[in-house]
Write a protein that binds this DNA or RNA. Structure first.
Length: 666
DNA sequence: GGGAACTCAGATTG
DNA sequence: CCAATCTGAGTTCC
């Protein structure tokens, strides 16, 4: 980086009215706040990775001093026990709540020791005597008709199980033999255990699935009843009529594999099924008016609503296919066309019903911006000024405020001198890259014997602490166990919200479990925390606050590979670490609070400069559609909690609009 | 060495 | 009961 020796490395806009900057507090500020630092800090030396962000005026103020205080160095993490009261569970689904008694304890034994439990199991084709669907909280009524809560629950269970299967498969720990398709296996397991919803087929929307929701597997849409087929593009409903059976199309998946024309945003030309023209050697034959095609034909007369799911292949990563639920359409026209191979195909023109929230159109807009079309409201192309390897744009589409109060963009943590958290550990001796399942890898052993990430860098499970490889590891820097150290994965946007200051969102869809960013800033002496708060520093991340509990990991009872009595999830992680992002910080300082967030934090430890430091890493809690605001739970201060949330002053009214909103936070 | 083409197993529904 | 459907990840090819 340039090091910030120049007065200002961010282009200035001469016309900006400085009085407007007074407070665009991005984060926690919902009360009036007058910034004392509308002027930038002095020119000076910045460590590598710094990129001063001075939208207005020359640097002046000295960065806050970080005072080392050896006496208050926190206890080593292994010794730290959880404080009382960490369990104000607000978990919703019965059975998945409160398993923290065993979850708190660190499991010492690697999972391989418990893998043998499945050997004595009967053949997997047999129905288990216990209905896990009931055990984990899906009632028969919920199986038939979904709700947002149930849909989220089922999707969470699906992906957690899929990730775990990928992890076990990668480590060759499965006694079932290789699983080539973890998605299908996870789907099959959930289906047989009754963890699914919207089984009752219906015309129109599937309760709990919202327009704009994204899916990374066809199987995900099966388990929530959005579209019943893994492969089939047309899902149909059969209605027993008085005289004959009527069949109507209820949903289609437009995957672009046929030459479906997806140019017009609200119109789809969909090709019927059959005709063999995927297979190269076989020449195309005419499609028949049966099955899905028959249903589409009936629907084109009946004019019933049809759910449309658009499959989108990612430009950047062609292996990644994302499905977007784009709402209800009706067939406007149908005809017989010619396929490239020569056969007749059925063609259907579907038109989106008006008045629905935008979904696919958002993707189209993002695509345009990425290909260079000017973005309305764009203030700055990259507020990190090169500190991140992916640009972070600054956008305001709602008012005239030009920038947040100034801060120094820094991508990671600054520690006070001699602020040692853990003894440096000897790195692993793996060559090239650490391999899942390698019991000789000391880093894997530290992660309870599991490789914490699956191939594409997705976190498998929440843990008390994720141990990543560091400089003393002999593996290559591109080792898969360095996910949180490699910076942003998606282009981000700091944007002005209507009523919550600045916020953060991604231009790309984000898969559940994907690393988003760490909470960067200055590590603060615990003794100074209350002082910071008194001073009005609202950019404080404190790991010891009380955070709402939630279930994210796989459900052990669904897997034959693990001991069913074992809890898979470690809840509260009261490792004492306080970070101030007021003067130095990254995109994380712009993430707002929500009582039903889409992002969670996870402590990650790795070594730098011969010390092991704990970092706060943020991961996607669910799949997040593009342009959706990223939020996490700010938690409740311990002192506030003791006195009862309502009574404490200084808390802010929550504007997250979630149905589970606690009303205030801070 | 990187993208395109090919391979292949695979579950639900009707 | 099994055909129809085309995915998703891995492998090979050029």
């Amino acid at each position: 980086m340039e090091g910030g020796t120049r007065q200002n490395s961010v282009p200035l806009h001469g016309s900006i009215d400085k009085s407007r900057i007074l407070d665009v507090k991005p984060l926690k500020s919902l009360i009036p706040f007058f910034s004392m630092s509308s002027q930038a800090p002095p020119p000076g030396q910045y460590p590598t990775g710094f990129s001063p962000f001075f939208p207005f005026g020359a640097p002046r103020q000295t960065p806050t001093e970080v005072t080392p205080n050896a006496a208050s160095i926190p206890t080593p993490i292994r010794v730290y026990s959880s404080p009382p009261g960490a369990g104000d569970s607000s978990s919703t689904m019965e059975g998945f709540s409160d398993q923290r008694t065993s979850g708190k304890k660190k499991r010492r034994s690697p999972k391989s020791s418990s893998a043998k439990s499945s050997l004595a199991k009967p053949k997997k084709t047999q129905e288990p005597p216990v209905d896990l669907g009931v055990l984990v909280g899906i009632t028969p009524a919920q199986k038939e008709d979904g709700s947002r809560e149930v849909v989220n629950f089922v999707l969470m269970a699906f992906d957690a199980l899929r990730r775990r299967l990928c992890q076990l498969e990668g480590a060759k720990k499965l006694s079932l033999g290789p699983i080539k398709r973890a998605d299908l296996k996870a789907c099959n397991t959930l289906m047989t255990k009754g963890i699914r919803t919207n089984m009752r087929k219906r015309i129109g929307s599937a309760p709990g699935v919202e327009i704009g929701d994204i899916f990374f597997f066809r199987a995900e849409m099966c388990v929530v009843g959005l579209h019943a087929h893994f492969m089939g593009g047309i899902d149909a409903l059969h209605i027993r009529g008085e005289f004959e059976e009527e069949t109507l199309a209820v949903s289609i998946v437009s995957s672009g594999e046929y030459d479906d024309d997806a140019e017009d945003i609200d119109v789809i030309t969909y090709t019927g099924q059959g005709g063999n023209f995927f297979k190269k050697d076989k020449h195309a034959i005419d499609q028949k008016l049966k099955r899905g095609n028959l249903a589409m034909d009936r629907s084109s007369r009946q004019l019933n609503e049809i759910r449309v799911i658009r499959g989108i292949r990612d430009d950047v990563n062609p292996n990644l296919k994302v499905y977007v639920y784009d709402g209800l359409y009706k067939i406007q026209d149908s005809w017989i066309g010619k396929a490239k191979g020569g056969g007749d195909v059925f063609k259907y023109k579907l038109v989106r019903m008006p008045g629905q929230p935008s979904a696919y159109s958002v993707w189209k807009s993002v695509q345009k911006w990425k290909s260079g079309t000017s973005r309305i409201g764009l203030i700055l192309a990259d507020i990190s000024n090169g500190a991140e390897n992916i640009p972070v744009s600054l956008v305001n589409e709602v008012d005239n405020v030009k920038a947040p109060t100034y801060f120094n963009y820094f991508h990671s943590l600054r520690h006070p001198k001699s602020f040692s958290l853990m003894q440096p550990s000897n790195g692993c001796t793996c060559t090239k890259s650490c391999v899942p399942g390698d019991s000789n890898c000391s880093c894997i052993r530290r992660n309870e014997g599991d490789f914490p990430y699956i191939g594409n860098g997705v976190l498998v499970s929440r843990m008390q602490l994720v141990h990543e490889c560091g400089p003393t590891c002999q593996c290559f820097p591109n080792c898969k166990n360095r996910v949180s150290q490699t910076g942003l994965k998606h282009p981000m946007e700091v944007f002005k919200t209507k009523d919550r200051g600045w916020g953060l969102r991604s231009l790309d869809p984000i898969r559940s479990g994907t690393f988003i960013c760490e909470y960067a800033g200055e590590v603060v002496d615990r003794a100074k925390v209350s002082q910071l708060v008194r001073e009005g520093n609202e950019y404080v991340f404190d790991t010891t606050r009380i955070y709402g509990q939630f279930k994210w990991n796989y459900e052990p009872r669904l897997l034959e590979e693990v001991n069913p009595n074992e809890s898979s999830e470690h809840y509260a992680m009261p490792y004492p670490l306080t970070i101030s992002a007021k003067n130095f910080g990254n995109v994380a300082r712009f993430m707002n609070h929500s009582c039903s967030p889409n992002v969670f934090w996870q402590p990650v430890v790795y070594e730098e400069n011969n010390q092991s430091y704990v970092h706060v890493a943020f991961f996607a809690l669910r799949h997040i559609p593009p342009m959706t605001e990223l939020t996490y739970d700010y938690g409740v201060a311990r002192s506030d909690h003791a006195e009862g949330i309502r009574a404490v002053k200084g808390r802010k009214k929550c504007l997250c609009r979630s149905s589970k909103c606690r009303g205030s936070y801070g």
